[in-house]
Design a protein around this nucleic acid. Structure first.
Lengths: 339, 339
DNA sequence: TTGAAAGCGCTAACAT
DNA sequence: ATGTTAGCGCTTTCAA
């Protein structure tokens, strides 16, 4: 019998109250710093709090009609993505600063998983939720409506958001890349992305790219949907697979920078010259994109800003301060040496 | 007046109970699937639950003496690290599967921030916590002891853990790398890492490296502590800075692979040959390490395994199933072409 | 198999 | 400036 089932020795408001010779209510007021106590009382109470090692019980506080929950749900495709990692760091840090706790989940690009996550999270009666992307299941929409809590859709911009949205125009970023590619003389492009992201309708950049590219006389010669998560590996092997089958391609537009860098590495190993033999374009603005000998042509997304703004916006809404429903940030093309 | 302050229209147990013509208690039993109801009752109840869109209130359930919290706190240095991103994905996924919710925070390698985070988290009365690394403040230790909840220290192994630990032997991984370097004939090594990680005592791999390297007749000619987070950039500029000042170096051991790859990129840009002019060793096993033309010599850490095991271990402990206190996973050296 | 009652820790509302 | 009361939604305990 190593650990006993411990009898909750935790001090509560009434213990403090008793020790300080005041009522629970007074202690509560002091701790929350709402007025209704004298300086002398305050000091007495705080001394007892200190002595007892009292830890507030937010479960109890969030319970009842007060319902002052400081929990916030955040859902992203996956945390191991560099992009979302940076966004999450900023979201979490901002919430922390303002006294909120983020409960983070991932949905792996499936709206059904997002819905499942949401159902679990709502059981904790969060003050609000942050959802990446604008794709949601019917069930998710209903749950959110019933919950009646503020929602921020972040990452790519939703111009008619459920409640608020922060992000960039993804379609345009692809469109711009196509214009640039055409300008550089490319005519035969392949698109390379992850099956799951693509088929769940999350690759608007490809749609924008295709539209501009074909309208300008270019041709999308191939679309390769890989049954794998985007990353250096999938970019590497995806490129190998693609170029072994298709020769008549003069550029590849990758889903993101990690894949593009994987593709670039494959080309370098094979002695395929970039951009002379084939052009490569990425997306996102990965740290590594700008330091390699061949600097990647890509679209830089302001990840930090998206994270911080999203969290701040939710907090403002909770405080009933005025907020913009739609906050656009710019994703801009950076010229490298690969396209 | 766009949004009213919503009067909690949420259905509760008693609503279901009334609609189904049974007592709250029966509904509770059905929903938790503990015995004490007939099949007929079950169906009646579930039908009403369905109809009403009832969402359980875990706050209320976690309240009171029952205290059946399914919240778990998880704290890592930062989420934007690829390593911890992968670990977190696996932790979160495992907890999700078993009905737990992870509250994730970051401490940016400062024990004081971990303590602050812990204090906030404990106010939510979590069932347990997962902490990366074995470095904690006195305050953290006291809080954990008072809370009396199970703790898993993950990432690098703590052989005398607070309660349980899952990880690799970091000292040994550096030791092994040094042995390998000596074998390859290197004599004059520089260490390059982030100031914050280093000074908070989190770079045992450097200690192990130095011990083995110097014992074998090598010399650590320089230790460069960068005031920046580890990453491609800091590796790139750190290398530039180091090699501009010091010529008499035949290898660099980097804090991690992202830094090493940044350093490698700088060398390639400058026409410095790797490993002929200088050897490079990384640590961690980043995806990109193995695909570039120069494959990085590094130590691969089983990140997925650490994440999954840590979560499973905590769950086992909560269920009072037998658990190992110390679970070692192996980090192994992989030969690349850079050292 | 079912129900009734008590109570968890806190805060809003209403005294004093 | 301070205290009292009531109740949030659920589960545990005890009774039927």
């Amino acid at each position: 019998m190593k650990e006993k089932s411990l009898k909750k020795p935790t001090a509560s408001l009434s213990h403090i109250a008793e020790a300080a010779g005041v009522s629970k209510m007074t202690v509560s007021r002091v701790l929350r710093d709402v007025d209704g106590f004298s300086e002398a009382t305050r000091e007495k109470v705080l001394r007892e709090v200190e002595k007892s090692g009292y830890l507030p019980n937010r479960i109890a506080a969030a319970f009842g009609p007060s319902s002052a929950s400081t929990l916030v749900g955040v859902c992203v495709p996956r945390m191991s993505s560099h992009f979302f990692g940076v966004v999450l760091d900023n979201i979490e840090h901002t919430f922390q600063r303002f006294g909120f706790q983020a409960i983070i989940g991932s949905h792996n690009q499936q709206v059904s998983e997002e819905e499942l996550w949401l159902k679990n999270i709502l059981a904790w009666r969060p003050a609000g939720v942050l959802l990446s992307s604008k794709h949601h299941s019917k069930g998710t929409l209903k749950l959110l409506k019933d919950a009646g809590i503020p929602v921020v859709e972040f990452w790519n911009l939703n111009t008619s958001p459920l409640s608020m949205s922060v992000g960039f125009n993804e379609y345009d970023s692809g469109f711009d890349m196509a214009r640039y590619a055409i300008l550089k003389g490319y005519k035969k492009a392949a698109l390379l992305g992850s099956l799951q992201d693509w088929d769940s309708g999350r690759l608007d950049r490809f749609t924008g790219f295709e539209k501009c590219f074909t309208d300008a006389g270019g041709k999308i010669v191939h679309k390769d949907k890989l049954n794998d998560t985007p990353g250096f590996y999938s970019g590497f092997y995806g490129t190998e697979n693609l170029l072994n089958r298709m020769q008549d391609v003069d550029m590849i537009y990758f889903q993101d920078d990690t894949m593009a860098l994987g593709g670039l590495a494959w080309c370098q190993r094979k002695g395929i010259r970039v951009p002379e033999d084939i052009g490569i374009a990425g997306w996102g603005g990965h740290e590594a994109a700008s330091i390699l000998v061949e600097r990647l042509t890509t679209t830089e997304v302001p990840m930090q800003k998206i994270g911080t703004l999203s969290a701040e916006l939710l907090i403002r809404k909770l405080r009933e301060e005025p907020t913009d429903d739609v906050t656009a940030v710019t994703a801009k093309l950076v010229e490298g040496t690969t396209l």
